[in-house]
Design a protein around this nucleic acid. Structure first.
Lengths: 244, 244
DNA sequence: CGATTGATTGAAGGTCCTCAACAGAGGTGG
DNA sequence: CCACCTCTGTTGAGGACCTTCAATCAATCG
């Protein structure tokens, strides 16, 4: 397994430290969380809608998304995730999964018993506060996504998705925001923005032609961050501490 | 003031009892929460995006919504609320409001100091668990709304919004679901579904012509619940305990 | 009772979708 | 190591759904 145990939980601690104050004891308890590491390939479903869950899934490395489907098969991605994110923290208190969690690249995840995290949340108020705040920021991002698919056109919508991804990636130490690995396919961008992959393709081409972005393979370069922001109408306030 | 103090907090207790176990002491502490009642008219903004907040707003009577706007003025409603709902519980841990909260009918709200609720959440684990679970259900509803505006056509989208409203209304003791007061205008339905009021009008007419619903004034009658559900692709699982 | 807000309907147009074909990249197995 | 296959990206043509603009009607309210 590529990541050792300490590294696996260190990502979670780094994230919580952006959200709350942790003392030495808090950190010790977090590092002592029982867990098992798993390497998964792109496309693996870590959580299935409707299933009972007793473990929480921490993303140690790689990228993942959460998605839901309509009764006639339409698929909607509701969030993207990167290292340090707990992918299904809501299962601490809601045992039945209401959506799927899928790896979109090869990834390493750590499975942690929900009961252990729950206990820690109540015994260490700092940790509980951080975890609760994390779920509240999740909810804030969901609200922004409702606005994104509901009220922006394809161009702004995709630009906004890119802005958010860059901003969160920088916060998660994935490197500088001007050039970065874009882990999702155009089909997945479509599923996240409520568009078809065909229209995503045309819209990305337009953004390239306008000199706002550039692409080579899966690598994306932001040529003009100010313009991308303006097209998206992006204001990072909704990310709260998570995107600071 | 139409509602007395006990009635005001009783709605919150009823709601929390659907989400967690409360003992006599929990209930006593909840009833002892300091608060002030306010009667507000339709259109009143209780919370403004970007503002610092130190009080939480409990909806005692009437209806409200939360909404956001794009930089060029597009407006998106991200949730509707009814009595018993805490309208901005995220401000317990996120001081800066990332959206607006607005009364859509005349309403009675109770303002409760956020610090008092926060204290109760940590001192009474049952209450904390119930409140956290409530915010997680909120998030689940947001996810469903992303799916709704992202992947359903106007007809299913509006049908889904109606199904959710009815289901939550029944759970909140607002009366039977077959005939009920629809508090929002067609413009607000449009803002919630990412459509224009014109298209909402045409779509509602189609649903009426098909015998699925009927309307008189602001009153809506569900003529064929099975068909409305089918059109919406509605499955109440995402409401978790809140819509049981 | 005039004024304002919300509902209703028509006509024209635009954004995005569907269907379809093809190119390129990457992975697999013989 | 190359042939093959699959997945992803790309582009074109036509059409559907929803929007925009506009006018009219109904209901509510000061």
């Amino acid at each position: 397994m590529p990541a050792n145990d300490n590294e696996a939980l260190a990502g979670l601690i780094r994230k919580l430290e952006r959200l709350t104050d942790l003392n030495a004891d808090d950190r010790r308890r977090l590092l002592a969380l029982p867990h098992r590491l798993e390497k998964v390939s792109a496309g693996t479903l870590m959580v299935r809608e409707g299933r009972d869950t007793s473990e929480c899934c921490l993303l140690v490395e790689g990228f993942a998304c959460r998605h839901k489907t309509t009764s006639d098969g339409g698929r909607q991605i509701v969030s993207f995730h990167m290292r340090g994110d707990i992918l299904d923290i809501q299962h601490l208190l809601l045992p039945l999964a209401d959506h799927n969690v899928e790896a979109i690249t090869e990834a390493i995840v750590a499975w942690i018993p929900a009961a252990e995290i729950r206990r820690l949340a109540w015994e260490r108020p700092n940790i509980g506060e951080g975890l609760w705040r994390d779920t509240l920021i999740d909810a804030s991002i969901f609200r922004e996504w409702i606005l994104n698919v509901g009220r922006r056109d394809a161009r702004s919508r995709i630009a906004h998705m890119l802005c958010e991804f860059v901003t969160r990636g920088v916060a998660a130490d994935l490197g500088p925001g001007d050039g970065f690995e874009l882990p999702m396919t155009q089909e997945q961008i479509g599923d996240a923005t409520g568009l078809t992959s065909v229209h995503v393709n045309r819209t990305l081409k337009a953004l390239r032609d306008d000199g706002v972005i550039a692409q080579e393979r899966k690598r994306m370069i932001v040529r003009d961050w100010a313009r991308l922001r303006a097209i998206a109408g992006f204001d990072s306030a909704y990310l709260h501490a998570a995107g600071a």
